[in-house]
């Protein structure tokens, strides 16, 4: 009646305001993110930061199916969220930060199409430098170094931490003694009773320790690991030495007539000793050698180790009888 006329007569700024609650924006954003993901993930947490009345920034934490092209999928979510949230809330969504908080295993059927999406979309160029890296590279033909595998080098974290701790303690102790009113650094050094046997012994021990440290610095370490043939340029592989021993043992024990096997796996040489319970020891040795070398081939060591197989009759060895030796 009269009320609509009055409101229309008031100036625009005094007619009232439309307020969109943060909760509403969060719901819109969550909904938009879920739409963009299309079942390949969910939006877990959404936070909204208002900047003034008409502007907002949003942050979305996603849970995505893995494997998928993470950058591509999150970029799609970002664009969709900004578009939909701006349209539906009327706010200016100036920024949408996407974080992938967790990943879960996708069901096998969706793997190929989710990963193929990058090639199909084509709109986004591959990230810098990764285009060549991601393509399927077989073992490059340009060098044997790639295929052979380097020996893994230890980072020496423990020795470095221990050395740093000792140096810190020594320097700290000296600092306390040299503190004002205390000794000067030259007087500390000159006060050492050099002819004391204990000091001579300590000096010798210190020198030996120094040699150990230098050796640690120069040697590769990680003697436990044997390098394997590298499958491609970005991958290195190594196998535990005792695991090689176990594989050789399993190969040798499967031979007929072998009751026990002892394996010593060194870094360059593998010694297999088979104990024969019955039958020809030489035949068992040959069969075990064949079996072990096949197993060694299946490991694919970067530097083929030498394999030596010996056989000895076990305690209750029965010599080959006519019927057993016949085949």
């Amino acid at each position: 009646m009269t009320i609509p006329r009055q409101t229309s007569a008031t100036p625009r700024a005094e007619r009232g305001t439309v307020t969109v609650a943060d909760r509403t924006v969060r719901r819109i954003v969550r909904q938009a993110a879920t739409e963009a993901l299309g079942g390949a993930g969910t939006a877990r947490e959404v936070s909204v930061a208002r900047r003034g009345v008409r502007e907002a920034r949003v942050r979305v934490a996603l849970e995505l199916a893995y494997p998928t092209d993470l950058a591509d999928r999150s970029e799609r979510v970002r664009r969709h969220v900004m578009h939909r949230a701006t349209a539906l809330s009327g706010l200016d969504i100036s920024r949408a930060d996407i974080a992938i908080a967790s990943l879960y295993a996708a069901s096998p059927g969706t793997v190929s199409d989710t990963l193929g999406s990058r090639d199909a979309s084509g709109g986004h160029g591959p990230p810098t430098g990764s285009g060549e890296a991601v393509t399927d590279e077989e073992v490059p033909t340009d060098g044997t170094t790639v295929a052979r595998g380097r020996r893994p080098w230890s980072g020496r974290p423990l020795s470095a931490a221990a050395t740093a701790l000792v140096v810190a303690t020594a320097a700290g102790a000296l600092l306390v003694r040299v503190a004002p009113g205390g000794l000067t650094s030259s007087s500390v050094l000159r006060s050492v009773p050099l002819t004391d046997v204990r000091w001579i012994g300590a000096g010798a021990a210190f020198a030996v320790l120094g040699v150990v440290l230098v050796v640690l610095a120069l040697m590769p370490g990680m003697r436990r690991w044997l390098p394997l043939v590298r499958p491609d340029r970005d991958t290195w592989a190594a196998i535990d030495r005792s695991s090689v021993g176990l594989l050789l043992r399993d190969a040798a024990i499967s031979v007929d007539g072998v009751s026990r096997v002892k394996v010593r796996s060194g870094r360059r040489r593998f010694r297999v000793r088979v104990f024969v319970a019955y039958g020809s020891t030489d035949g068992a040795r040959q069969a075990a050698e064949w079996s072990a070398s096949a197993a060694l081939g299946g490991i694919g060591l970067g530097r083929a180790g030498r394999l030596s197989v010996t056989s000895v009759p076990d305690k209750q060895w029965r010599p080959p009888t006519g019927e057993e030796a016949a085949p």
Partner: peptide, 28 residues
């Protein structure tokens, strides 16, 4: 590994460390 490299879009240099569990010898 190929899927991880595609998914992240980085080279992802990888160190594979293989071990076999210690087990008793089973004689055929």
């Amino acid at each position: 590994l190929c899927r991880a490299r595609t998914a992240t879009g980085v080279r992802l240099g990888t160190d594979l460390r293989l071990t076999t569990p210690s087990h008793r010898a089973r004689r055929a």
